[in-house]
Computed example of a mutant assay.
Amino acid sequence: MANQKNENAAIAVYGANGHTGKFVLSELARRGLKALAVGRSAAKLAHAGTQAVEIREASIEDANSLDRAFLGVTAVINCAGPFLDTADAVATATLRAGAHYFDVTAEQASALSTYDTFDNDARQAGLVFIPAMGFYGGFADLLVSALRGDWDSVDDIRIGIALDSWHPTIGSRNTGARNTARRLVVANGRLAPVSLPAAVQEWKFLQPFGPQQVIEQPFSEISVINRHLRSTEIHTYLNETGYRDVHDPSTPPPAPADGSGLSAQRFMVEVMVRKVNEERHISAFGRDIYAFTAPLVCEAVQQVLAGKARVRGAQAPGAVFDALEFLNALAPDQLSFQTSGI
């Protein structure tokens, strides 16, 4: 439940009428946090029956509307992609409001821009700005940070993502069309374009996935991890099933499998961190990457409001939070995971 001293804190959810935004509103309500639904059309938000105590209308083209929408809020969660289009305007308005900022971008360039643009001002204002606090981005960073332990630097980080299906939302489709920049990895200690053609190899996931063919497919976690952890190499691989589904224009959007609204999709994320000849591993398993983003970002908001942020400014979640404590807060209801080597 909400921290006592923040029980009246208001959290604005921009893009509240979107697929992920609705999950975020529901999760905030479940946690007893006061949510304000913000979007381009108040009528559409009202018609959708969003779980919010108040509806406010705003658009990124109108800075004054954003200022009115964020008046009196303690934090803003931006769920409206493509974030290359929305993040700067929403984060700027959040800074003017004196509130903490979170988004769920999978776009590397958007996360990098938020770090570069807002770190100093947010730090001086005593605020926390966390881009990419979703399944793609912050989740892998937390897994890596949990493995890091007492290592101040590592030699190699490998992230494997297995999906039994990927039914992309309209927002994911729009983001893919907008985000045409060459994806980045960390190679030889520096951000560099991913090698083409993308590397294909086998990854021996734990059951129920087992061995899978994976394709190098970096998301925003590369930008996020590189923000605070030194590693010679950082690479992300997506299994062929997920890669094929998201690149197939005929794949339908996600559909609820039960009364919870979650799809039937299952995911597994495995991380290997190596320093010299020592390796550490973590495997995490859950359901519905879009729905899972909601407890991730809401837990981040709740910990910041509870005074658990270790640093201020535009930061990676692994720098802000105790990663293992954070993951344990999601288990076992939203996440199961196991580690080795630590």
Rank of each mutant, 00 (worst) to 15 (best):
E279M: 10
Q334H: 14
V186P: 06
I234Q: 03
S340W: 13
N226A: 10
R280T: 08
G39Y: 12
T232Q: 14
S223L: 04
G18S: 07
Y115Q: 11
H228Y: 07
V246W: 02
T293E: 00
E202T: 15
T20M: 08
R158N: 08
L84K: 10
P249D: 00
D333R: 14
R183E: 02
E57L: 08
Q207I: 12
F321T: 06
A192Q: 13
V301Y: 00
E107H: 02
V269F: 06
I170H: 12
R266T: 07
E278R: 13
E270I: 04
G341P: 14
N277R: 09
R310W: 12
A314D: 07
V53E: 08
L163G: 09
N179Y: 03
N64F: 10
K204D: 14
S223N: 03
V224H: 00
P254S: 00
K22F: 11
N328M: 06
Q108M: 07
S220C: 01
L112G: 05
P131T: 11
I157S: 04
T105K: 11
L33G: 07
A48N: 01
A146G: 05
A192S: 13
G149Q: 05
T180V: 01
R230F: 07
K308G: 01
E278Q: 13
R274V: 12
E61D: 12
L95P: 11
K308R: 10
A29K: 15
I130A: 05
T232R: 14
F70C: 06
G149F: 08
A284K: 05
G149R: 06
N277S: 12
A42K: 14
D85T: 12
R310I: 11
E57D: 08
R183C: 00
I60D: 00
L25E: 06
K5W: 12
D88L: 04
A255R: 13
N78V: 01
F23H: 10
D103I: 08
Q315N: 08
V304L: 01
Y101P: 09
P82R: 02
T20P: 00
A198L: 10
S145T: 12
F209Y: 10
A323Y: 12
D116C: 02
P254L: 04
Y14N: 01
V194W: 02
R312W: 14
S110M: 09
E107S: 06
M272F: 09
A12E: 03
K34A: 11
E279F: 04
R173C: 03
N120T: 15
G49D: 03
V246S: 01
G134A: 12
R310V: 11
G126A: 04
A294Q: 09
D152Y: 15
S336I: 13
E107Y: 02
A91C: 11
A48L: 09
L229P: 00
R178S: 05
A192P: 11
A91P: 05
G137L: 02
A146Y: 09
V104I: 15
V185D: 05
